[in-house]
Every structure is written in structure tokens, then in C-alpha cells.
Amino acid sequence: MSLPIAEIGEVLNLRNISPDVWDMDVHSPRLAPLAQAGQFVHIRISDRFIPFLRRPLSIGPIDKDVIKLIFIVRGEGTRLLAAKSPGDKIDLIGPLGMPFPMPSDDTLAVLVAGGIGIAPLLLLNQSLPKAVDRLFLLGMRSLKNTPVDLKYAALFNLQLATDDGSAGFHGNVVDLCSQMLKGQQARNINIFACGPVPMLAKIKDIGVTLGVPTYLSLEVPMGCGVGACQSCAVECADGSGYNLVCRDGPVFEAKDIILPRV
């Protein structure tokens, strides 16, 4: 894994995918070739320090020198990010954190995304060896809240789950995941998930029940992003203290951590 670098990227494209969800393509020729699936970039939001902190965003799919970021407008920081225009410079630190481990060729990789949690899984899907079979599941409240252009659904054989039944499986993505894994127990399965904590908790349960390696990508409040401030702590399952999401994660094997309280 390479050490993080500082790069001033350039916003190439910014699209409003669905209400509050944005997709930003950033030209970052030095950082993009170093990035591995599951890693993140730490983005400077305001030159005036309001809001104060950088925002960590998972690195989405990469096209040569261009990384895709997917984010939801939740507060002032992401609102300012969504207000950028093509040609704007963007101050990035990355790639940061530990990536998803690569499964062996005989593995069935099960990628489970909740909403914008799909971003690192799109890069994982892109990075997995061709020989690896995969199931790629995406859950969302409704088709109108999609975090991605639905052309991906066809391209990647993305299986959708919607709470309101507006597309794909009517129900949550965890139930879809359980259903699709029935009858697959004989296979060598790895689960990779990113999404809201309640979803990750249930995916962890599935992994425990099946006894399969389960990797979760976490999002928590973060300061420096490089392991200096120790703000982004997550409790170790063995009682030994805390791991840092920025340095030891954001990808953790589910059995190693206690998920943050929601």
C-alpha cells in the first residue's frame, strides 16, 4: 500500500443523480493510479475554515486519471462540495486507509451496498480478478433515491432492493442478500459491504451465521485522516481498545470491531 500524497485535483464533471445525491469526477493523475478499492480521499471543503474539517469520501470507480466520488448532501460541507463547478480545483489527500482484501479466484464475492455506500464497491467490482464470481447488491429507499446512474445495473448485473418496491426486490438489501446466499453455502464466500451502520450490523450477522469472512467499510466523524489525532476511533471486539477508521480501516473484518452506536 502506498503512502498518501497531496494533490490539487480538478473537478471534471458534477452530476445530480437523484435528490441530494451527487456524482463528481475528479482529475487526479497522481492519486488515481495509487488508489485501491476501499481507500478514501480527504477533501478540503472551505478555505475559510467554515465548516472546519475535511470530508472523507470513498474512492469510487477509476477511469485512468479520474476518480469518481459519490456523496449525499447532508450538511454545509457536502452542500459546498455540490456547489463546485467543472474546472474548480479540489484539495485532496489520499489514497488513505486500508483497502478491501482481494479474494482468491475460487471465491464468490458478495458486494452489498446501501445507498451511496456503493462507491467503494464499484471500485472493488472493477478491481476484482475476472475469475472471481460475484453478486452485487444495492439497496435504497426507492428507485428515485438511486445513488448511481442505473446503467450500472445492467453493466454489472446489479441486483436492486427497494424499500417501496419501486425496482427489483421489494424489501431491504439485507433480506435480498440472505435470500441470494441460500444454497450457496458450499462455496467459498467473502462478503464486502458499505452502507448505514444498521445495515452493516445485519450483514455482520449474516457473515457470522454463514461463517464467512465479512468486510465492512465504515464512516465515522474524522479529523486529520492520517492517524495523528485519533478522533475516528472504533472499538476493538477483543477489548484491547480502539482502532482508527482512517488508519486501520475504513475497511475492517466484521469480527474485529464493535460497530459504532447509531
Binding site: A233, V234, E235, P260
Partner: peptide, 18 residues
């Protein structure tokens, strides 16, 4: 080991709490 998370949050007008 340090304190129970969350350990950091922003405050209004560019402040920080840790």
C-alpha cells in the same frame, strides 16, 4: 485507550470540539 467515540465534531462558525 482514550474516550468513547464519537470523539470529534464541528461547532458553528468554524469551531471544533474533541
Amino acid at each position: 485507550p482514550g474516550n468513547q467515540p464519537p470523539r470529534i465534531c464541528e461547532t458553528q462558525l468554524g469551531g471544533l470540539l474533541n
